[in-house]
Amino acid sequence: MNGMLEQLKEQLMARIDTDDLLEVDKVNRYIKLRELDLACSEAIDKDGATIVIENGSQRFIKAHPSMNEKSKLNSQMIALEKSINFTNGSLVPASPASSVEGKQGDYEPGDLV
């Protein structure tokens, strides 16, 4: 594990109850997902964002397979971040309320005619 991931793990572990094995497992899974994400980034940096597929006399250019994997890993990491029970605040801020009902704005009821 590189230094940046070790520091990230230490920071995350400091924000959870380390006696809760489920939360510790979530942090470990998050770090593993980050390792896989970095490996995908290295492969993309090495090979480029596109690759050439040759099938007999045909040549196709397509997106690097790691691009799709990075997208999946990102979704998994976001979901895992939301599920971790941080003791001193959430890593991911809560989304603002989307409902307009009951809120007073800078308008008068007559403006809605």
Rank of each mutant, 00 (worst) to 15 (best):
V24W: 00
V24M: 01
V24S: 07
D25W: 04
D25K: 15
D25L: 06
K26I: 01
K26A: 03
V27P: 00
R29K: 14
Y30H: 11
I31L: 07
K32Y: 02
L33N: 13
R34L: 07
E35F: 00
D37Q: 06
L38C: 04
A39P: 01
S41T: 15
S41M: 15
E42G: 06
I44P: 01
D45A: 13
D45R: 04
K46S: 12
D47Q: 07
G48D: 02
G48K: 08
T50C: 08
T50A: 14
I51R: 00
V52L: 06
I53G: 00
I53S: 01
E54M: 03
E54I: 14
G56K: 04
S57L: 07
Q58C: 05
R59D: 04
F60V: 13
I61R: 12
K62D: 08
H64D: 01
P65C: 03
S66M: 10
M67L: 14
N68M: 10
N68Q: 14
E69D: 08
E69Y: 04
E69A: 02
E69S: 06
K70D: 12
S71Q: 12
K72E: 15
N74H: 06
S75A: 10
S75Q: 06
M77W: 00
I78M: 08
K82M: 06
S83N: 10
S83R: 11
I84W: 00
N85L: 01
N85W: 03
F86I: 10
F86P: 01
T87I: 10
S90Y: 06
V92Q: 11
V92I: 10
P93Y: 02
P93L: 01
P93S: 01
P93A: 02
A94G: 11
S95M: 05
S95P: 11
A97Q: 07
A97H: 06
A97D: 14
A97K: 11
